[in-house]
Amino acid sequence: MKEVIVSRLDELVGRLAKKDEQIKAWKDFLVDFSSNYSNENFTEELKKFLSNLLQYISGKELIDGIEMLHTEINGFPAIDVYKTAVEVFEDIKRENQMRITELRNILAELATPIIHLWQDILLVPIIGTLDSQRAQNMAEKLLEATAETRAKVVIVDVTGVPVIDTIVGGFLIEMFSAVKLLGSDVILTGIKPEIAHTLVKLGVDFNMVIIKRDLENALKYAISISSEDNSRRLLRLKRGNENEE
């Protein structure tokens, strides 16, 4: 079989592909294939050759190509090649999945920086749309950071959030309650007119947190409460508790 492939190499490759790089890829594949065919660990090698080849051609082209080789070359192990190809596709798929997860993690980290802005003050600017996975990651990270830095105040800036619907509103409320359970205060800022409009229409109520007009005011207020003694804070908390009841 090796001889057949070698002798008809150019003719076969010409029928397998039209583009230069694909021709080269098929050629390499066939050469590697025929020269290693009798090796003991051929299956392992084949996997490598196939993944090289698949960088240049699509799955469909591979199937057509193997079919052609099967009819043209007596004894071409099409089934073995298909089997190995499936394994290669599985590997590629797994790799892609890993890459996606990795990118998602990177994105989550980039999109929600937690800035230790001032003594006892954390700033969390939220940028982009929040889905449940992202909101969950963000909440986990924020809580860890709050506990770790023992921050008194967390400023959450939602200027970069395009829409806050009931679901996102719910996430935020849960996150705020959790921060409060750690004994820290939350200041919310950056609510745009259209968001304020939908919030009220949807009945999302951020009464449990302090809301400030812009980051400047939020920061001023945060500094004032982070330096206040506990008596004033308690007054506020007590008032809050009464409001809830």
Binding site: L143, T146, R150, E174, M175, A178, L181, L182, L237, E244
Partner: peptide, 25 residues
């Protein structure tokens, strides 16, 4: 001293700690 993960779980279950003040440490 509520652990962050515990705080998140309580908040997501909608649990309110009535009559309790929370402190950082």
């Amino acid at each position: 001293g509520i652990q962050p993960a515990v705080a998140l779980t309580l908040a997501q279950m909608g649990v309110r700690l009535r009559d309790i003040f929370t402190a950082r440490n």
